[in-house]
Design a binder for these strands. Structure first.
Lengths: 196, 196
DNA sequence: GTAGTCAATGAGTACGTACTCATTATATAA
DNA sequence: TTATATAATGAGTACGTACTCATTGACTAC
């Protein structure tokens, strides 16, 4: 039976899970360039064991990122901010990202040294958000409170601002969370900016 | 005499110069993670020779970046866009960066893996630009054509947008120059956005 | 001309780290 | 109970790359 899992298979799945969780934590704190032996050490397993579960380091990175993207996309998708103001919607966006700040920060900072595939994952995260963004902004545009600039440009300005603050978190909020520290200011400034 | 240089000293200076220029070119095309042996090969000198002129790889990177920052700062400083519109000023900014697009693009994309000191250099480049930005925007704010948001926030929104497009150049302008392709749209959209 | 200096060389070293594989221990099947 | 399958191990290998250093040969000072 497929539902019935032997002790061995359960153990294997548990180890794989342990690696994935540990890697996500390590990538959050030390960045994606962290060597594999640090991850296995942190996970309390042998170095070789990692390669029983993931054929290459890149394979592991992709798996971690896929899970992350899935999780964030789900959370973003479930946001109930329909008919809210633009600023509310932006705050909700920031609220979700706060849960992943360190990881997301490293992800956008180090995209250049990550496997190509991960680019697509980042795009899918943005797409998940763009739906709510579009809804709120278009509503504002229809009732004449928001400027008539192309939606994609407004979205890119918002994402660009967000990423800029995340990447330079140590300048804008030294030793602290940028989203916590500057999130409100960002949402507020941006919504003022796009309003007529 | 210090003005009098022996043949030897001239040769040494020429080699150092050759390394710096080659490194800048290589960093532009392959990024800052390119190994030192690629640079020396490209420069047509022995690998060991590099370490006669630069004690470490990091030392070379910093020297290259210092020269770059100096050059860009000078060009930005010399911009004669006083009393021009905000959009003109932004176009001028883009015009300068076009000359360094590949290098600058890699710089903002890979800041995370570069030595700490280089962060300061990037800041100094932004500072050089912020003067013109402030002048143009404040003039607009005084005569009531530009929104009254804090100057630093407007500047960060602009830089964030610019960097976002540079970092994702392959999405916005595949196989081409983003600044060439999207520069006008960026300057135009941003100036529309901040106008009342 | 001779001795000393120094830029340049390139083979060699040190080191980190991704990945392998023979072995071990444990669960499952007979 | 015995035999087989396999998850996990960790010492070992391969490889890339930053950096060293004894040697060379062109320049300089005397």
């Amino acid at each position: 039976m497929s539902a019935e899992q032997g002790k061995r298979q359960l153990q294997k799945e548990a180890t794989r899970e342990r690696i994935l969780r540990t890697a996500a934590a390590v990538y959050s704190e030390r960045g994606f360039a962290t060597p594999t032996n640090v991850i296995t050490q942190e996970a309390g397993i042998s170095h070789g064991s990692l390669f029983v579960h993931f054929s290459t380091r890149e394979d592991l990175q992709i798996s971690v990122l896929e899970r992350f993207a899935q999780e964030v996309c789900d959370e973003l998708h479930d946001l109930s901010v329909n008919n809210g103001s633009v600023e509310e919607m932006l705050r909700a966006h920031i609220g979700v990202l706060k849960n992943y700040e360190l990881f997301y920060r490293n992800l956008v900072s180090e995209t250049a040294l990550l496997p190509r595939e991960t680019r697509t994952l980042l795009v899918s995260v943005q797409s998940a958000m763009s739906h709510h963004f579009g809804t709120a902004v278009e509503q504002g545009q229809r009732n004449g409170t928001v400027k008539d600039l192309p939606l994609h440009m407004l979205f890119n300005i918002w994402i660009g601002l967000l990423h800029y603050y995340l990447q330079n978190g140590d300048l804008f909020a030294p030793g602290s969370s940028v989203l916590e520290q500057c999130g409100d200011e960002l949402a507020n400034s941006f919504s003022k900016l796009i309003s007529k």
